[in-house]
Design a protein around this nucleic acid. Sequence first.
DNA 1: GCCGTTTTCGGCCCGACTGTTTTCAGTCG
Length: 581
Amino acid sequence: MENADVANVLSQMASMTEVLGGNPFKVRAFRQAAQVVDGLPGPVAALRRAGTLESLPGIGPRIAEKIGEILDTGTCEEHRELAARVPIGIVEILRIEGLGPKTAQELWRRLGVTDLESLREAIAGGRIRELPRMGPVRLRALASALDRYQVRTARMPLYRAVVYADGILNRLRALPAVRRAEAAGSVRRRKETVGDLDLLVSSLEPEAVMDAFTSIPDVAKVIARGETKASIRLESGLQVDLRVLPPDSFGAALHYFTGSKSHNIALRTRAVRMGIKLSEYGVFDREGKRLAGEHEEDVFEAVGLPWIPPELREASGEIEAAEKGELPELLVNEDLQGDLHVHSMRSSDGRSSLEDIWAVGRHLGRRYLAITDHSRSRPLGLGPEEVLEHAEEIRSLSRRLRGGPKLLAGVEVDILADGSLDLPAEVLARLDWVVASIHSRFHESRETMTRRLVRAIESGVVDAIGHPSGRKIGKRDPYDFDLEEVLRAARAHGVAMELNAAPDRLDLDDRSCRLAKEAGVQVVIDSDAHVAHLLDMTRYGVWVARRGWLEKKDVRNAGPASRLRTRRRRAAKRHEEEARP
DNA sequence: GCCGTTTTCGGCCCGACTGTTTTCAGTCG
């Protein structure tokens, strides 16, 4: 049972309670608990053993008990009761954009819709029009959301896939027959979503490895099992493929199964030109003599190249760069010195105190943390006076606390419909760090969205644009805007672009990071944590940054606090001067 | 179901937006 599995049961309970019209606050409690469990840096089972589950925010005695039950049995009493009253397929229907609990309930009770399949039929047959408030526009929106949903759900977010991969790999590594066990494929390349897991094992006794692999407790189905190759499906729905190879082929196989396909083709073409042959079993000359295969580095060396980090292997210039000795020195986790987008209890949706945030930041070795609560156009967001009061509180606390990160007084200010900011410039100019983000009216035209972002950048009082595309993976597409024009403005005004590391955002994405770098715009990698323990999510951002070719120098919070603000400091000074009589 | 410097009961975010409507329900952030 991984954290994601426990979270999934809790989240199903939330949805089923919701569709039954149960207490909405209970629904929210389940949902929040699911999020907290899903975001934990370590296994929830360890906290349970230590008896500290109830110290987590949003988890009280009842949910702690349910988590215990789920860990032991895979489900719990209340989940079973709910599942007996509501078809479980309803849970999935609720994930469709624009379709909430009320509509799901109507669909189920009036039309007998119980899963995605029957929903599709109800739409296709036109019966869905029998529901109240179901006109042609909603019908079309739902049909399109359903199509997009089915395409998206085929893949699992990387951060979850990695947990499953590590769990299985550790199990395999414990076998005496196993010399090495590694994840290949898109997990190793750190792609943001993963279709299935590709695992490789180096061993001279494949039979024993196969036995262990196909009898993992999580297995729902053994799809195939041969002598050196097997596929299973886990309870979570994830497919896992395993290949077992002898040690002298392991490096070549690791390269081959890491891909990407187009990178492999490019490298093989290069090998052919050099008169050698590359396969998953090794590198061979014309006579079939083995030149390399045990280590991946040797495979690259055989084709005259330095080792290329897996994250770059997309046939997007990495082979040329390797040839010229111009591969980037990719960012690593330890390079990050601070986090510049963190919410405290002052935001309606923040859940941790400044002290808790500081303590987690200290544990992670952060040198600085910007507290950036929401501005007033968000519910319970801060108005001008409140922002300044909050800033005073942050600064005075930071002066008192010793030995940990410096707390910076910041704000996440909303970019309004016309591109103006939700707080006066003279207030923003008095803060240490200002993130500006769009949280509403996502569906304006490309021109309007671009203008909103550019105007915010040109305000002179903004340090970074938060989650610049607004996308939520598997849920909401990015809004339409001209990234290159926004980057040009950002470059001109010294404004950074955020790489928001929340696992459902990862925004900027890898390609956009690379564009930012090429445009000479620095990126900031932020957790956007709403609970203190989620500060560590920046590690997901580092994965994306590496795929985006980012180096330490490209990431502003990989440097000291003294170098955070550049252009904006001058603007602040100007405002101060103007404010003088 | 959680939570508490308003503490063991009684709150818990609420306004904007949209498509459907003659006055608002449902969804979203």
